[in-house]
Design a protein around this nucleic acid. Structure first.
Lengths: 338, 338
DNA sequence: ATGAAAGCGCTAACAG
DNA sequence: CTGTTAGCGCTTTCAT
């Protein structure tokens, strides 16, 4: 058969050129040891000569397996997610998976659509950083045939595999630290209400404040830098805080910016504690004190759990909590040391 | 036939439940108008009842088409790339593609492997941000059956589609600006030698300096923050610059950090000009002056060109140059105004 | 307007 | 050890 240079060769072309059957070619492709040396050479040569690459897609169809994992996250542009994504990609790569990626912009409806699209793409599993707390959507998730693992943001009381940190406790500890430094007027820049991690952090803040007989003051934002800027502007008038605990570093950075813009200083006038420990919290001036989240490790762990599940190793759902860590840098100072 | 809830339904199951043939189901799946209303209803109902999702993978195999695009980039963790990636993803999504993503860490060997893996995955096209200037690798690229578009980093004198900015001219303009401000001792923090954009920026810097009868001083780094820190430490002793032009913002930020650590100030003691205009260059203190690159738009444009090529719309290779823009913020000051 | 059947590129029994 | 054959889930002629 004529094999035009312009058309992609398939297994049949290789078989003919090597004078063997498709099955034999398939065997050498899969490193089946029972192919005799000489024949194997012939096949290998034919493959090279034709510049043949097997079609993963056909292979997947035939084996009813897939080597793809879907990664669904809010916005890769938010600096917290790239390192999570890297952990996922690196672990996936090591296990032989390639990954589909898609952004949801925290839109629950879009999130559903993307999940379904990924299922249609025949991904073997999905890593989901969800913006969903809605009952109906969760049920839809449950009915999926495809293994799912939740990252970073949980859906409580449901049988999902998940890996995250203890956001409630992390926030609590940060606030307790601030209180220990003598602060009494500590405001909270909270994240969106449909995001579990934001909700937990807020609860941790509120409970820590109440436990110390302090009055909480919460300003709800969107996890963005601009949101941090604007909320802080309002906060300063309404509450006159000596410290701010922000639900993420982006908002903390925004707060810092606004404070300086108003001619005040961090930490001398207002202390700031962030959350996430994104790269830039260690590049700002002053350096940002924050809660370090092992994002890369969360990603790696998620893929490992997902892989287990995809291989049918595990039955019940599993919930892994990784350790966070308070990073004490330069943006916080005791209230008495002012 | 019994359809277990636990197994994924296929087109056959739907056909049986709706009492029609697979062909008919396929037709309603593809919105073929010649299916009668009542039958169409039956099929739609069966689909819903079984929670059926067609297999994209099988469909692709049958149609010999694919709806996937591969995105190969150095490191999603570098804050310049997420916005490029977003442009790509958004445009791809709009055109019905889903995207595979993979990081190369600027390793040319790994880059080759990933390209081949993507081809095996039957991606319809590849968006490549390459770390390759090597002749052999480029030839390998040329022999690919899969359409490729180069983003951001070009491979000169080769018939590839590409979209980028004019890095040479951008660097030249930034340096000319610095010279116009009275600076004569302007150092350059360059990027890796195997990366085209870094090479072009360096050339732009050198030529601008020579044209003004100034002596260039280049320190080669890795595009990382740490690299910016270390190179600057050395620079300050070896060259005593009054201004630094960094090949990217991450290094510029590192330079700024090191300058403050040594008790000097930006811009009073040393001016800094960056490149990329990543989000954090507008969050630092002082705000970073930099070259703005339309990363999102580069991504969008790349996908549009790739789509054309995938649909066979275009024949010859096409090279799109987008406009950059100098962002004058706070990190630069005239040498006489000190 | 609908169905039957062949085929996309590959794998996996089963023979030999 | 190697070849034959029958699918994987879908689309697409070609009949009817």
């Amino acid at each position: 058969m004529m094999v035009n240079v312009l058309m992609k060769p398939n297994i049949q072309h290789v078989a003919e050129r090597a004078q063997v059957s498709k099955a034999t070619v398939s065997r050498v492709l899969n490193n089946n040891p029972q192919v005799k040396g000489e024949i194997k050479e012939r096949v290998l040569r034919a493959i090279k000569e034709l510049n043949y690459r097997p079609s993963t897609i056909a292979r997947n169809l035939a084996t009813n397996q897939t080597n793809t994992i879907g990664l669904i996250l809010p916005d890769i542009t938010n600096p917290y997610f790239p390192v999570l994504a890297r952990g996922i990609e690196d672990a996936a790569h090591r296990l032989g998976y390639t990954i589909f990626i898609s952004n949801t912009d925290n839109d629950p409806k879009l999130e559903q659509d993307i999940i379904h699209k990924m299922v249609e793409q025949q991904v073997g599993g999905i890593v989901l950083i969800s913006s969903t707390l809605d009952e109906k959507a969760v049920n839809d998730l449950t009915s999926l045939q495809t293994p799912i693992i939740l990252c970073d943001r949980l859906i409580e009381n449901k049988p999902f595999d998940a890996v995250s940190i203890d956001n409630y406790r992390a926030a609590q500890e940060a606030v307790q630290y601030l209180i220990g430094q003598g602060h009494t007027r500590i405001a909270h820049l909270a994240g969106p209400k449909n995001i579990q991690s934001a909700v937990s952090r807020r609860a941790g803040y509120v409970d820590a404040m109440l436990a110390a007989n302090l009055e909480p003051f919460v300003s709800v934002g969107t996890f963005s830098y601009e949101s941090g800027v604007h909320q802080t502007g309002d906060l300063i008038h309404a509450y006159k805080p000596t410290a701010i605990f922000a639900a993420n570093d982006l908002m903390a950075l925004g707060a810092m910016h606004e404070i300086y813009r108003r001619g005040m200083r961090v930490p001398e006038d207002i202390s700031i504690f962030g959350c996430d420990d994104i790269a830039f919290s260690a590049m700002s001036r002053p350096l940002m004190s924050t809660i370090s989240i092992p994002a890369y490790q969360i990603g790696v762990t998620a893929v490992q759990l997902l892989d287990d599940r995809m291989k049918g190793v595990r039955a019940g759902s599993k919930n892994v909590i990784l350790e966070h860590k308070l990073m004490h840098r330069e943006s916080c100072i005791g209230v008495n040391r002012k």
